[in-house]
Amino acid sequence: MTAFQMVHPLLFYTLSGLMVVGALGVIFARVPIYAVLSLVITLFGMSALFVALGAYFVAAIQVLVYAGAVLVLFLFVVMLLDMAPEALFRARSRIMMVAGIAFGGIFLWQLVHVTVVIGGRPGLFTKQPVAGTTAAVGKLLFTTYALPFEAASMLLLVGIIGAIVLAKKKL
């Protein structure tokens, strides 16, 4: 396990800047495909931050699951819907904008509250090594969380059976 280390400020600000640029791209892109691709930048920036914190496993999962699976799903949906640009433009109503800003505001407030107010309390964040490495996660999965892990494997099996049953015409 790596010792707890601070991310170098230069690295942190570069990555965060990249993430903000990506996030702005998601909002302002006129074509949905570009919006999805901008999201990739944000997610990669986030996984790079995890690497900088020594949480390699989380970083890898971030890339595999979010940048990989979830975004491909987004792309599929965008391509399947294939909305005309005018329809997209009309979909951006004022109500959506107000609601979006309101929700964004709530989440921002939450984030600030958690990091500044709650995070400022003594004893909450200790400078201990991050337990996000593969070894630590694997150990937990096969000891403490062995039962939920097995139950989750059952869940995946149900997913497979269900997909086959629903999608195939003849079994």
Partner: peptide, 13 residues
């Protein structure tokens, strides 16, 4: 949560 999902996903199918 895992067990509730096991119930829910089975029932969706």
């Amino acid at each position: 949560f895992v067990s509730l999902e096991l119930i829910a996903i089975t029932f969706y199918v």
